[in-house]
């Protein structure tokens, strides 16, 4: 079976945009809600694009353009996108119009940029990519499902490169709605935030950050099924729990959320060091996209930034070799990913 690699990964978030400065010099984040720190779009986009495109589109496009520039892969074979709420700013604008002004003032421009697949479409137009193009919108697993889709396309031998991304934008008023239902804003929780993560997957190890060695998604698993899922994932990659350098979880400070990760790590991975990332990047529907982004850069640079470890198990000596990523929502749906350093790294 051919191997799959993460060749490049870029982000726009609460940290410095299009940069890995967070690894040594993280921006500390506060407050219940924090918008992303944008780069200077004018250096990447034409004035018309800057004016016409919504923020989520500009961010996605700029991270993709940066990857194209870095890797020289101009026309990816597939584009796979995950988004929890799609182009929320435009959707919210239309909902407000509908409730305030009735049905006579609807704006076609906002509607055209309000569907969930607007981002994947824009990326295809800009990279002139006519190949496989899919958007998944499934709560906190949206990005993980997009990654899984790309993974299957590689496994079926259909593609050699794929642009994969997780994107969500969040307005202060929609943040309020999500807090009302307890999705965001629990006591002690890291900020609710926006996500832009784009990565390029290839079947070629040249210049890659790491290998994507396994991927598994489970719905409503029993504890036993979860254990089996993890066992199969590790077994297929030929590694044991003891060989894991660390597990990266989605703990975010919310007690109910963190309890699921605590149960997972303590029962299935005792003795494996635990890492977190949401205290740096915030939390939200596609925040799980930051996990492979973080892991890929740690494996490539051969160190775990000081800001990541939590819990009582100390990090092992030496460069990280294999990282397990776990993402879950309400204990109902789980995603497990296995990332491995390149040989000789």
């Amino acid at each position: 079976m051919k191997k799959i690699y993460i060749r490049a990964a870029e982000q726009i978030s609460l940290q410095q945009p299009l940069s890995e400065a967070w690894m040594t010099d993280p921006v500390s984040v506060e407050g219940p809600y924090a918008p992303a720190a944008d780069p200077d779009f004018r250096t990447w986009l034409t004035p018309a694009e800057s004016r016409r495109l919504g923020k989520i589109l500009k961010r996605a496009l700029v991270t993709a353009l940066s990857i194209v520039r870095k890797t020289g892969v101009e026309h990816p074979d597939a584009i796979c996108v995950g988004t929890g709420l799609g182009c929320m700013v435009n959707t919210e604008h239309l909902l407000e119009t509908l409730c305030r002004d009735g049905e006579s003032m609807f704006s076609p421009t906002h509607f055209m940029q309000s569907t969930h697949n607007t981002v994947a479409s824009l990326l295809a137009i800009h990279t002139k990519s006519h190949g496989h193009n899919l958007t998944c919108s499934h709560k906190d697993l949206s990005f993980d499902l997009a990654l899984f889709d790309a993974w299957m396309q590689f496994r079926l031998g259909r593609i050699r490169t794929a642009l994969v991304g997780g994107y969500d934008e969040l307005t202060p008023s929609y943040y309020t709605l999500l807090r009302r239902i307890g999705y965001l804003g629990a006591e002690g929780e890291v900020p609710g935030s926006e996500t832009t993560v784009t990565m390029l997957l290839t079947d070629d190890s040249k210049d890659a950050l790491c290998e994507l060695a396994g991927l598994r998604i489970l719905y409503r698993p029993t504890p036993e099924e979860l254990r089996q899922g993890l066992e199969h994932l590790l077994g297929e990659a030929g590694i044991t729990c003891g060989e894991l350098s660390a597990v990266i979880t989605g703990v975010n400070g919310s007690r109910t959320n963190d309890a699921f990760y605590e149960a997972f790590t303590s029962q299935l991975l005792p003795g494996v060091p635990t890492l977190r990332y949401r205290h740096l990047f915030g939390t939200g529907y596609t925040a799980s996209a930051f996990a492979p982004y973080v892991a890929a850069h740690c494996l490539e640079r051969g160190f775990i930034p000081e800001a990541l470890p939590y819990g009582s198990v100390p990090l092992r000596e030496g460069a990280p070799r294999t990282l397990l990523l776990v993402n879950q929502r309400d204990g109902k749906q789980y995603s497990l990913q296995l990332l491995r350093a390149l040989c000789g790294n």
């Binding site: 988004t83 929890g84 709420l85 799609g86 569907t115 969930h116 697949n117 994947a120 193009n133 899919l134 958007t135 998944c136 919108s137 499934h138 709560k139 697993l141 949206s142 499902l145 899984f148 709605l177 999500l178 009302r180 239902i181 999705y183 998604i217 489970l218 719905y219 409503r220 529907y285 109902k332 749906q333």
Partner: peptide, 29 residues
């Protein structure tokens, strides 16, 4: 509010009939 997103409708439909092993919601208009 909790039923607004695409994934919510998929899970409402799925969970009525039992426990599926995997669920996903493609959204390409």
């Amino acid at each position: 509010i909790a039923l607004h997103d695409c994934g919510a409708s998929t899970e409402l439909i799925a969970d009525r009939f039992g426990r599926f092993g995997f669920v996903a919601t493609p959204s390409t208009a």
